[in-house]
Design a protein around this nucleic acid. Structure first.
Lengths: 334, 334
DNA sequence: TTCGTGAGTGTTACCGTTCTCAACGTGGTC
DNA sequence: GACCACGTTGAGAACGGTAACACTCACGAA
């Protein structure tokens, strides 16, 4: 910067003003400085700037250390929006979403002077851990519970309960007397909210509420639980907590000799890119993860703009049903 | 830091020495300083340190802006290894892996003083773009071509050609007279390498080499190409460039009335977590993406340690075949 | 005794920005 | 003609560390 100033015949301060687009610089001076910058191929040193301003123009992402489709897509949604807003994103993953590791992740990000933090796939423990973040560090959560409880941070999420209602309603409307549910991990708010939406819809319709089984978010879990359901001839409709689980359920049903959708209808959740190519193509609840990420970033940036102000409102995004071949009316109605 | 020094009754330089675990500090002094640090809840300012040392302890990742299973898993492999080594990772994604956007991404990372860069899923254009990175910025590529051409950077990758050979050989060994191939995007080195391995194996076996069709890495592409193959009764074995494509092919075959594996055997590539639950469970070529990420990081760190030294050797990881129900001997042999 | 050596510590400069405040026109107003 | 406001510019001090070097001892060898 000193060299640029010398070449342009001005002080370093004026160069700084040009960089930061300060209005009170004569046009002719600005041009001279810009020319000097170009000819010296000057690039501002962000570390020095961070030191002086306490702003790193970097955002921290705390994510779960695994490859779940949703969190991934959110990450990319966030990153591209952040880039557009002039921020870089740094990621800190956490093996298990428990208190200690999350605290360490926050600490690591804070040490690197991130301006704000977005927590992906927060189990409640993540949120409480985030509470211990250094004061003045803006935090936003994306995904997670749609519970009505008081959240310590502004949150962007899909209305999981509404999505589950959509799926369950869809199956009931087709004529199924009740709907079975294969849930996700019981300690994940998303999973709880979907159970809730399913249960209340059945209840409102006066349908029997079958017992729930739960497991991880993958096909292996769906397969295992699906085998039990396949063995029960009373089962004609299954709502799965996500598409991967549904894939496992489909296989279990096929192995158990139950035809889909002729004998059993199956509905998933997420609308992963390939779920339209399952056998049969999967009816599912669509959620736009990338959009979720973008909204989370927008929320954080708004929060960043006005330090000390009241945190912005939560955002709740409505999912939609995508009907495909895996769900049809039960045999008795055809 | 000044406060810590004052409280401990030493100079700030001694505090710095304690932080950096410099040996020449009396144990008693060190204790006093550490106590002062604790009582003031001191945390070193990394921006200042970066400014002084030109080292940010941050690594840049350049990735493709989409959610492909491989790149994702590599990202997590890299991140967890980086954390263990005391580095934070910043990601810069690029919508299309072309020259200009990649240059901008490198630039963005360089501005933030990353110590090194790992490029994920590099098409050749990424590598050439990386050549224009500021001198002294260590770069490593992970994934991509296993071509024999001279690479400008040290690279870690799976031996795609060997994987394709494994898959093709497997099908030939089962007794199929030849193997059809549904390829990935023609401009991706991974895709090219798999075509190559497939082709040379057929050639070596004296088998007919059918024409190749190619498309994106998803089930939609597999479905579209699979429909043509399903219509050809001569087709008894299909090697797909990845598992998602295989999913689409499976559906196309089913729709076309061709039973798998009775009439047609199908093999994929990647061994995604759920491919064992396809209908039928998919025979595929396993590659450990997380390990790939870890190795890439190790390579970069070694490079970082000795600036100016000769770049480290490339790493080539051998994939393995996972045989499942989707591949069996052809009907005529049973 | 004298000197060299190395451990332990402090002093000062420096990294590249931004911020604060003062200085210098220049033009309009009383 | 004196004064003031304002646009434009510059000088110097932060920001919070690390690097380089100087200094003070205690100790052992010549």
């Amino acid at each position: 910067m000193r060299d640029v100033a010398k070449l342009a015949g001005v002080s370093h301060q004026t160069v700084s003003r040009v960089i930061n687009e300060h209005p009170n610089v004569r046009a002719e001076t600005r041009e001279r400085v810009l020319a000097a910058m170009r000819s010296l191929n000057y690039r501002r040193n962000l570390a020095a700037r961070t030191l002086a301003t306490r702003e790193s123009h970097t955002l921290g992402i705390i994510g779960f250390e695994t490859t779940l489709f949703g969190p991934e897509s959110m990450l990319y949604g966030i990153e591209s929006a952040a880039r557009a807003a002039g921020y870089l994103v740094s990621v800190a993953t956490v093996r298990d979403l428990e208190h200690r590791p999350v605290l360490e992740a926050v600490d690591r990000l804070a040490q690197h002077d991130v301006d704000g933090i977005i927590a992906i796939a927060p189990k409640p423990s993540v949120l409480t851990a985030l509470t211990h973040a250094p004061a003045g560090l803006a935090c936003v959560a994306v995904g997670g519970a749609s519970g009505s409880m008081e959240e310590p941070f502004p949150t962007v999420r899909v209305d999981n309960t509404a999505g589950a209602r959509l799926a369950t309603r869809h199956l009931l409307d087709l004529g199924h007397t009740t709907v079975h549910h294969v849930a996700g991990p019981p300690d994940w708010p998303e999973s709880q909210a979907r159970v809730e939406g399913w249960r209340e819809t059945l209840y409102a319709a006066g349908a029997v509420v079958p017992p729930v089984t739960s497991g991880w978010w993958d096909a292996a879990a769906g397969y295992e639980q699906g085998r039990r359901l396949a063995a029960d001839p009373a089962v004609t409709a299954i709502f799965c907590a996500n598409d991967r689980i549904a894939l496992g359920v489909l296989r279990a049903l096929q192995e158990g000799g139950r035809r889909v959708p002729e004998e059993v209808s199956v509905v998933g959740f997420d609308d992963m890119p390939d779920s339209g190519y399952f056998l049969p193509p999967l009816t599912t609840v669509h959620q736009d993860f990338a959009e979720l990420g973008r909204r989370a970033l927008a929320l954080l940036l708004r929060h960043l703009g006005r330090p000390g102000a009241a945190p912005p409102e939560d955002v709740l995004i409505a999912p939609s049903l995508v009907a495909r071949a895996s769900s049809t009316p039960p045999i008795r109605l055809r």
